[in-house]
């Protein structure tokens, strides 16, 4: 889409990372999920019998609707049984602003007591039991969406309960051995739930959903382009790391002279001033009401800055 709009897209994934990620997920799930269930039991298994052989239901079906239905059925059967069940790449649906969004978690484990636990497998390492907090945060938000989607199925499934603690599985230290950590996603779940009830705009929803979520792509490229232009400019530099369209938005934001181009935090002290030219004009005394505290502070800042630069140039320091 970014390329279609004429802005270069910075993204793409290294095949080294891709190969490694896939190899790691395969390793974690190898042997009928024995290792995965061992990790899960170690950290979340209190009160249950150790998993022996886990049931791995076949979840293949035609189309996302078919897979979703198949997943719901498998969840019901697993909950009714009193053993451990591992659902490998189940498909879940979440109704967002009237359209179904399909989600595919790495795995969901059904405990003998009917608890459903979301499992996220990531290829960033846990070194000495800690990991990149930004990446863990992203994984937690992603899992929270899965938890919400699962809760809708659980509400109509006898004896089911969705765990708010998810299992994050990562490579240990510098090896390819899996290790796991429990992440409490109650906060992320609460935030996402509130967002889903409040959000009506499709682009916000897209931002709130994990990557890999698929919309029904019912519109042409031209329509997309128009839609993107219609979105109010909410560009912030954080977008650069998250969105393919960010360079496009940045160019627009810069052309408009929006101060947010320099970072969200910049706005904090600029009050109602939103453009670079506007701020500079206020600072230099060309525009603005000196009784407005923003304008007054800007002029003080400009004067102090000019005075200091002059002092340094002239070499005349005060004591």
């Amino acid at each position: 889409m970014a390329t279609a709009l004429g802005s270069p897209a910075p993204f793409g994934q290294s095949q080294f990372a891709l190969v490694r990620g896939n190899a790691f997920e395969a390793k974690v799930k190898a042997g009928g999920g024995t290792e995965l269930l061992r990790l899960l039991f170690e950290r979340l298994g209190a009160g249950a019998d150790a998993p022996g052989e886990a049931v791995l239901p076949d979840l293949t079906a035609a189309g996302p609707e078919g897979r979703t239905a198949r997943t719901a059925l498998a969840l019901r059967e697993a909950t009714a049984s009193d053993g451990w069940t591992l659902l490998d790449h189940p498909m879940l649906a979440l109704e967002v602003a009237g359209s179904p969004v399909y989600l595919e978690p790495d795995a969901v484990v059904v405990h003998p007591d009917g608890t459903w636990t979301v499992v996220e497998i990531k290829s960033f390492p846990m070194i000495d039991a800690s990991a990149d907090a930004a990446k863990v945060g992203a994984a937690a938000r992603q899992s929270a969406v899965y938890v919400l989607a699962l809760e809708r199925i659980a509400s109509v499934t006898e004896g089911a309960r969705v765990g708010h603690r998810v299992l994050l599985v990562c490579p240990k230290d510098f090896s390819n051995l899996p290790t796991a950590s429990v992440v409490d996603v109650r906060k992320q779940r609460a935030v996402t739930r509130r967002q889903l009830t409040r959000l009506t705009r499709i682009e916000d929803i897209a931002a709130a959903l994990p990557e890999g979520a698929t919309f029904d792509p019912g519109c042409t490229r031209e329509e997309l382009g128009t839609a993107v232009e219609a979105v109010p400019a909410a560009y912030a530099p954080e977008c650069l790391a998250a969105c393919e369209l960010a360079f496009h938005c940045r160019a627009r934001s810069r052309a408009e002279g929006a101060v947010e181009t320099l970072g969200r935090g910049v706005r904090g002290e600029l009050g109602g001033l939103t453009t670079v030219a506007g701020v500079l004009a206020a600072a230099s005394g060309k525009e603005g009401d000196p009784a407005d505290p923003t304008v007054a502070a800007l002029r003080r800042a400009a004067a102090l800055r000019a005075e200091a630069l002059e002092t340094a140039d002239g070499g005349a320091r005060c004591r």
């Binding site: 101060v259 320099l262 910049v266 002290e269 600029l270 670079v276 701020v279 500079l280 600072a283 502070a297 800007l298 800042a301 400009a302 102090l304 800055r305």
Partner: peptide, 8 residues
């Protein structure tokens, strides 16, 4: 604010 001004 003084750093913001420098950036602007």
């Amino acid at each position: 604010l003084i750093t913001t001004l420098a950036r602007l």
